[in-house]
Design a protein around this nucleic acid. Sequence first.
RNA 1: GCCGACUUAGCUCAGCUGGUAGAGCGUCUGAUUCGUAAUUAGAAGGUCAUCGGUUCAAAUCCGAUAGUCGGCUCCA
Length: 661
Amino acid sequence: MSEIQNQSNQAVSSESGPLSAFDLFKRQDREVAKKAIAARLLRNGVKQEDPVDLSYVPKEGETLEPLTPESGNEALEVYRHSTAHLLAAAVLDLYPGTKLGIGPALLDDPKGGFYYDFQRPEGERFTPEDLPKIEKKMRDLIKRNLEYKRLEMPKAEAEKKFAELGEPLKCELIEEKAGATVSCYTIEGTPFVDFCLGPHIPSTSKIKAIKLLSIAGAHWKGDETRPQMQRIYGTSFFSQEELDDWIKQKEEAEKRDHRRIGPELDLFSFSDAIGPGLVLWHPNGALIRKVIEQFLNDELYRRGYSFVNTPHVTQSELFRISGHLENYQEGLYPPMTDKENEQIEYRMKPMNCPFHIQIYKSKQRSYRDLPQRYAEYGMVYRYERSGVTHGLMRARGFTQDDAHLFCTPEQLVGEVIACLDLVDFVMKAFGFEYKAELSVRHATDHSKYLGSDEVWTMAEAALTDGLNQYGLPYVRMEDEAAFYGPKIDFKVVDAIKRTWQLSTIQVDFNLPQRFGIEFISSDNKPHQPIMVHRAILGSFERFFGILIEHYAGAFPVWLAPVQAIVLPISDKYNEQAQKVEAELKAAGHRVASDQRSEKIGAKIRDAQLKKIPFMLIIGEREAEAGTVAVRDRVKGDQGAIPVAEFAARLSELNKTRALTT
RNA sequence: GCCGACUUAGCUCAGCUGGUAGAGCGUCUGAUUCGUAAUUAGAAGGUCAUCGGUUCAAAUCCGAUAGUCGGCUCCA
């Protein structure tokens, strides 16, 4: 990375005036200067958080590095933020009287891009037909190569200026956020002025590839009590190729959408007669779920878990004690009143933990009994607001693969390591890469956290030691812990590089205290056990949705509802097909046969669309030889092999949970 | 919950500014007996999401309800 010392700046500034970042870069390397869109600022060699404009004139002790398209997210953020300004300029030009909200860049996929919030005058609003017009105007502005100008002024002056411009929301922001000096940006030749920290690209022609995406409602500052504005989403890239790739990626994600694939492959559905967010698992989906459950069952037994079962409803009292009633009132289904005693109300359960605690509490526990590990695939019900349900990903009724560990402080590290190993084992089985995040308390401000310093220090140390001993790299997130304890979260990366938050390991100081659970230690005195909540898949519903998208519906053999389908060439070989089907079924495989009077091409096509891993074709040759011609859904025709050989192959794939054939 | 869009046969979708429904796929019945991604003929199938209104007349216009979809932390 080229680096320009301020000394050189001072050396020349006497003759030709002070030199800007751009001037300095140009001296160093014309090509780099041409590509630069902003500059990274180093003060006494220390990188400053916010980049600066190319017009920035460095001060004593400051060094600059160019920010180019190759600089990654830092540059992309500046670029997209500038595109958001361009959008606002185009909108103001086309729709005078529009008030500005905010317009930040977005980096996270799938929302990568930017948006700008607008308030149109009473009675006016954007419609989807406006987007092409606005986009066209943006392109016009790009062609005119207009300059992004930075203005600085005292706070009072800025407030006056925006008041004159009729931008009340901007005034509110200045009031709240601004220091003594306020910076603004304009785009030359447009009515656009924005209160903005910057930095921005030097001129509109730097913007190479844009696309406006959608219009949505958004409340000012995300606050529902504030007026609703119209938000325009868009995205921009340094090149058309990158934009095209992004569009392709989006289309790929749409093709994989579990809400499309689910009904297509007859995996699950929703029914208006039942209600939003309540899932019907069809035979194919339920079968996959059973296979996953069986896989987990075996593993959990092996790892010393006990299985428990608890009811779906409970007297509200349980959740009053746990604090959920107070804190999550909105998220609960409304209460049911007891028929015989109006004083008693029941609730659908939103969590399993208090039930497991009741099991723990059912008798006195000795330190010799610990750890207790209770696992349950517990169905819980949360009243998600009507606008937020999303297929299997966000449902109102879902099944947690929940477990609660009750242990002594000394046992915590060991339990953490065991959980890490379980997460690793399960994620690898499904072919997921993953990353870990350790969420701990704020370094100094502990006011919002419950529990003593002593116990927090112990728990954070146990999680950290566990991660280190297990050898798992992690990101430490300060101030991201839950109020009730520190945690480790896992993010998996799917087949098309999207990340999903799945597993979690959380230490809880709150519930043991609220429910007053204890164990008798070797000192013959009661102590409070450490409680750990842990989920691997999170919820079966959501995990299934993620799996469908991860595999695009083409499940590996061990999960596929139908692992192989027998396809007779014509009716003449139906009998042989039935024999082969029966033989494979007897060997424990999930096999079907297609005995319709269709041509083989049609049968193959249908099997292919159902994403069945193997097609076993039987014609005259195979019937005579007792073989099947194996067609792999990915690799195509594999030639004929004896039925027994195919059965052995299927067994092997199933046993090893192979992800490919 | 809020903003916007959408809801027509099992599925995907046509149906122009109101004149009372159409295709492809699928299903069913028959013919065909076929060698690696769609053989063929015929038939059945819809209170146009639901309820209400305007009109001589509503899938079409208006309103309400339900459901689905895109959003509603990202800051000057």
